[in-house]
Write a protein that binds this DNA or RNA. Structure first.
Length: 255
DNA sequence: ATGGTTGCACAGCAA
């Protein structure tokens, strides 16, 4: 099956482009982030008329995640669990076919010296805890989404400029490495070790044209799934043209 | 140089 993850920066603003992308790429599962819409206003019809079902966990204005899938989504979980529920809609889990899909929109963190950065670290630690408590490394799991972290310097167009900055700070890289330590593999990196591969480019100053980007969107899989993964890629072309999202889709082909 | 662009929602914040 083809699984993709895409931060669309508003599903309503991006609907035509997302639908066109689906028609062209025919994914079996499409995980969306930053849908920025309450569930009752999610534009379901274009997906349902194409044979997909939409499982949404959104909110007005900010955040929001959704799983668009050909096959039914079972055992849906919305949000990191109690006793400290996340006020933002940032985590959506569902079982599709034999895969446990965990779709996340990790907090941005804004700036390393801001309280939002501490909340980002806390959120990543809670994600680690959630995986440890609810899943096993031998399960067939895909963790994908906008992680808002560039794991290594080869994921950054200008590592010197980003050194110790948000998206690249050692503390968030460490927190993300703890998530990976559950037993998850970066499937894009497994197939593409080269630098210069990014998933997000700022809207400003021609960043995309100059390929000044960051690889902050990821598809990670447990070993049993990674072993079935015949290829993975970032669809850079989806960042081109009129009114794009600032992120490109990340795609994995899983047997 | 602290700029610049986009989305939401209609001012100013978040990214």
């Amino acid at each position: 099956m083809k699984l993709a993850s895409w931060n669309v920066n508003s599903i309503r603003a991006r609907l035509d482009r997302v639908v066109e992308w689906i028609d062209r790429n025919r994914p079996d599962v499409l995980c969306l982030q930053e849908t920025k819409v309450a569930d009752d206003l999610f534009p379901r019809e274009p997906f349902e008329s194409r044979g997909y079902q939409v499982t949404a966990f959104g909110q007005k204005t900010y955040n929001g995640v959704a799983i668009v899938s050909r096959q039914p989504a079972a055992d849906v979980v919305r949000g990191l669990p109690l006793p400290n529920p996340d006020p933002g809609s940032r985590l959506l889990c569902a079982t599709v076919a034999d895969l446990r899909v965990v779709n996340v929109y990790v907090p941005n963190g804004r700036a390393v010296d801001s309280p939002y950065f501490a909340q980002k670290l806390d959120w990543l630690r809670r994600l680690s805890g959630y995986l440890d408590e609810t899943a096993r490394p031998s399960d067939a799991i895909v963790l994908c989404g906008d992680f808002n972290v560039a794991p290594e310097d080869r994921d950054v167009h200008d590592p010197a400029a980003y050194r110790d900055q948000v998206h690249c700070h050692p503390e968030e890289r460490k927190a993300l490495a703890e998530v990976a330590a559950f037993g998850l593999i970066d499937v894009v990196r497994r197939h593409h070790p080269e630098s210069g591969l990014y998933s997000w480019w700022d809207y400003r100053q021609g960043a995309f044209h100059r390929n000044r980007g960051l690889r902050i969107d990821h598809v990670w899989a447990t070993e049993s799934v990674a072993a079935r993964c015949s290829g993975a890629a970032i669809d850079r072309d989806a960042r081109k043209g009129k009114q794009p999202s600032d992120h490109a889709p990340v795609i994995a082909e899983i047997a």
